[in-house]
């Protein structure tokens, strides 16, 4: 029968802290869903081209962002003049962008492939002096091919305007920092238990008397490793699938708090130089009050008539363990004293 679920050692508030790194990611996702205005401009010849009027919004929720992408012919370069005009047609920002695109093949050490690299995008993050209608005026100069010969190809320019752009790298950094801090918080809360004993020996029985019972749960963890002996005795059988562990906890008066025989599964483990078999078990227990407890764990020294022998037995005892959610734990108390007539 499974032990009952105890809620007294549950500390659940750090679970809510897991939502904190999600907040910047949620804002980022929301900003990507906001509508944006798109235009396609066609540059023919050397004359300037103006975009359709678009609205730039000033406010606290994000900032305007303009994205321009020029579709350059392969192996060409250009200088694109970009003027941002206000509603009256006066330039409020003027800049030039150098763009290029290279296409070709590469071969190195017997391998080859193609490449298509370009720098043809321009991003402007800015705030307008006041909300209003703006336009872009574009004019290209020096559209040249790879040999420096002027090209007369018409150029397509894709314009995208969004008014509530957020600082995406800062949101990602914030989410990362928050995740690191929350993981540290979890370590502080759930890793803050008392290590009472951690010992590893080559004996098949581990026995410790300890003062246990800090607020929270008592955790016992047992791990054992078996290996094949160098000289297996005659008549040794095949390695078994499992073994039986004996666990007993007694108080200072020798009264049994817990006594059980638990079957464990034996798992083969392939090491770098030798192979072995391991078995492990873990218990969460709760003492009614702090008390002196004798913990005794016993395993068979040999298995299958000497086919496997114990390499080591590892015992870990911690108390003051708290958990983020309810777990199965067994309450320990000495049996009631019998009344004598």
């Amino acid at each position: 029968m499974a032990p009952p679920i105890l809620r007294s050692a549950v500390v659940g508030w750090p679970l809510g802290a897991l939502l904190l790194p999600l907040l910047p990611l949620l804002v980022l996702l929301l900003s990507l869903q906001l509508p944006r205005e798109r235009q396609l401009l066609l540059l023919i010849g050397d004359g300037p081209v103006e975009s359709q009027p678009f609205h730039l919004q000033d406010g606290w929720w994000g900032s305007p962002r303009l994205d321009l992408r020029v579709e350059l012919p392969p192996n060409s370069s250009l200088l694109l003049d970009v003027d941002l005009l206000d509603g009256a047609g006066q330039p409020v920002l003027q800049l030039s962008k150098e763009g290029w695109r290279e296409q070709g093949t590469w071969s190195e050490e017997g391998e080859s492939g193609t490449y298509d690299e370009q720098d043809d995008a321009l991003t402007l993050n800015l705030r307008p002096r006041q909300s209003g209608v703006y336009r872009l005026r574009l004019q290209h100069q020096d559209l040249l091919d790879g040999a420096g010969v002027p090209l007369a190809d018409p150029l397509q320019v894709r314009l995208s305007v969004e008014n509530h752009s957020v600082d995406r790298p800062l949101l990602l950094i914030t989410a990362l920092v928050a995740a690191v801090l929350v993981s540290m918080l979890w370590r502080v809360v759930y890793g803050d238990c008392r290590l009472r004993v951690h010992r590893r020996s080559d004996e098949a029985t581990a026995c410790e008397r300890l003062i246990l019972g800090a607020p929270g749960l008592l955790r016992l963890q047992v791990e054992a490793r078996y290996e094949e002996p160098f000289h297996p005795p005659a008549g040794a059988g095949a390695p078994p699938d499992g073994l039986t562990l004996e666990l007993s906890l007694t108080d200072a008066l020798g009264r049994a708090l817990l006594q059980e025989r638990q079957p464990l599964r034996l798992r083969p483990v392939a090491g770098s130089d030798d192979e072995g078999w391991t078995a492990s078990a873990r218990w969460h227990l709760q003492l009614d009050e702090p008390r002196s407890v004798r913990v005794r764990v016993a395993l068979p020294q040999e298995l299958a008539k000497g086919a496997l022998e114990l390499e080591w037995l590892d015992l870990l005892v911690e108390d003051g363990v708290v958990t983020p959610w309810p777990i199965n734990a067994r309450a320990l108390a000495p049996p009631p004293a019998t009344q004598r007539a």
């Binding site: 994000g62 995406r168 949101l171 914030t174």
Partner: peptide
């Protein structure tokens, strides 16, 4: 602080 700065962007260049 990080989310607020990413949304309000107080240090962004303003025309003018």
């Amino acid at each position: 602080a990080g989310t607020g700065l990413a949304i309000t962007r107080p240090f962004l260049f303003r025309l003018g």
